[in-house]
Design a protein around this nucleic acid. Structure first.
Length: 485
RNA sequence: UCCGGGGUAGCUCAAUUGGCAGAGCGCCGGACUGUUAAUCCGUAGGUUGUGAGUUCGAGUCUCACCCCCGGAGCCA
């Protein structure tokens, strides 16, 4: 409806800008350049305009390629200085071509003396919601489409990207195969939480069976289907053929969780190793986390420095410490003992057989050890059916990795590879054996000891940035009552 | 879902026992020889989350609902 034919000036500007856009350089590279005197073209969004007393203006331009922006000097002699430059405010998009010079002012090493400044889109300061001052995270959640233009969310996006890239690199370096497991699953019994139903039936008048139940035989897949809560079971099938695999994909849970640690849609990384036990599992988890933080410290120090200064003052020290030191490893039984002897009064009592509460996990990782803790060998009764039974018959070879501040970031286990024992566990958990026919097949044919875990990617980003709320480390968070954007 | 806190100008927040709805920032105008969250002066800016109710009078008290935040549970 907005035909360009009605606005010839836009067509001209776009055509004219094309050549300049082709050779524009990312600001991150310009900031490191030593090539003074060179003609350089950059493009980005204005963060601030400061008018000098001398009849020219400073523009701070950011294109997201780095935390820091480039200072652009717009002389009063520019032909569009009064008509356009003076109307630039935070949020406006421009391309600037000029001479790269050493900055005479303090605060930046280089700056661009603009010879030409093209305005792509203005941002009316009366309407543009972002301001040159701190805006609350709560407010920015309502502006999820604009918040990547802020310092904080630009940095979050870069750190998140870096952690994703490092994840692939870590597993690829170790010959793990990246596996895409299905988003839509036919299994409603994965046991990892409430699921979103996937259906094409008309919710107002679904087809009914003779018993007046909804007739899912007439649904798209001819059976009930859901969004996945875990790719683990499928990953086990591929680990049982390709040795080591990992998934990295979206995961969905329809629990009515309202905390700063939960999302209805989040991303999970799930490695699965054949010919491995729970000790190998713990080794992998620790090596992986320490690898991520080491690389992040080495390659994204500018963003981390920002978080360390404005978001979480202990961040750099904590990340370095974790990268450099072993994790603590204790069994559930030992944890119960430690907690039982604690001076602290817990709201919930600590008894063998009860799951550890958030306050207990926090006490262990923050107060007792002051570093990441891997807790293993939980009671069978509080863990999932697929976890491998230990010799004592009471515990399973499970594993949780607890991080200070965010709590449980990894949950995993050695899987029950013994057909008879698995069958028994399915029965004891009150599950229907028929639902697990193919999962049981993996134990009937060439079964091997194997283990794996799931890591909540957003919790990882939380920990790496110090961001308190998980809704602020994913681009467009989905939580109960919130699916805007 | 449960417990607690909150919703007032574009944003962040004040408003005494129920008694004229305010400030800072931002914007706009002006001043100032290279600024860095610039500074200084000035203008404009309001259906107090929604709907009922009590009262001479409600931002303030009562009821219902909506939404947000924190904690808990579930979990990653």
């Amino acid at each position: 409806m907005y035909g360009l034919a009605f606005r010839p000036s836009i067509v001209a500007a776009t055509t004219k800008g094309h050549e300049a856009l082709m050779k524009r350089e990312l600001i991150k590279h310009v900031l490191e350049s030593e090539d003074f005197g060179a003609t350089v073209t950059v493009a980005g969004w204005v963060r601030t305009r400061r008018d000098s007393k001398g009849g020219f203006s400073f523009l701070e331009l950011n294109d997201g390629s780095s935390f820091d922006g480039l200072q652009v000097i717009a002389e009063g002699s520019l032909p569009n200085y009064e008509s356009e430059v003076q109307r630039l405010h935070i949020g406006a998009a421009v391309t600037a071509t000029g001479e790269l010079v050493e900055s005479p002012g303090a605060g930046q090493r280089v700056e661009l003396r603009a010879l030409e400044l093209m305005v792509h889109g203005l941002a009316d300061p009366e309407d543009y919601p972002l301001q040159k001052k701190r805006i609350s995270y709560e407010r920015l959640r309502e502006l999820a489409h604009l918040r990547p233009r802020t310092n904080t969310f630009g940095a979050v996006a870069r750190v998140r990207n870096a952690l994703a890239a490092s994840t692939h690199r870590f597993f690829q370096e170790r010959d793990f195969l990246y596996l895409h497991t299905p988003i839509i699953t036919g299994s409603d019994a994965e046991g990892a939480g409430d699921m979103f139903r996937v259906t094409t039936l008309d919710p107002a008048v679904p087809p009914r069976t003779d018993q007046n139940d909804v007739d899912y035989a007439q649904d798209f897949f001819g059976r009930p289907t859901f969004l996945t809560v875990s790719g683990q079971l499928e990953a086990e099938a591929y680990a049982s053929a390709l040795s080591n695999v990992y998934t990295f994909g979206p995961t969905f849970r329809s629990e009515n969780s309202n905390t700063r640690r939960h999302l209805a849609e989040f991303w999970m990384i799930e490695p699965e190793m054949a010919f491995a036990d729970n000790g190998d599992n713990a080794d992998l988890a620790e090596e992986y986390l320490r690898y991520l933080f080491r690389r992040l410290l080495d390659e994204h120090s500018r963003d981390l420095e920002f978080f360390n200064q404005w978001v979480d003052q202990g961040l750099l020290e904590r990340l370095s410490s974790i990268a450099d030191h072993d994790f603590e490893r204790i069994t559930y039984g030992e944890a119960v003992e430690v907690l039982g002897n604690a001076e602290t009064d817990f709201e919930f009592p600590v008894n063998w057989g009860n799951d550890l509460q958030s306050e207990h996990e926090r006490y262990l990782t923050e107060t007792v050890f002051g570093r990441p803790v891997i807790v293993t060998d939980y009671p069978f009764d509080i863990k999932a059916f697929y976890m491998r039974r230990n010799e004592d018959g009471k515990t399973v070879a499970a594993l949780d990795v607890l991080l200070p501040g965010v709590g449980e970031i990894i949950g995993g286990s050695q899987r029950e590879e013994r057909f008879d024992v698995l069958l028994e566990s399915i029965g004891e958990k009150g599950l229907d054996v028929a639902d697990y026919w193919w999962y049981l097949d993996l134990r009937r044919f060439g079964s091997v000891p194997h283990a794996g875990f799931g890591l909540g990617f957003e919790r990882l980003v939380q920990f790496a940035t110090g961001m308190q709320n998980i809704r602020d480390v994913i681009a467009f968070p989905r939580t109960p009552n919130n699916a805007e954007f």
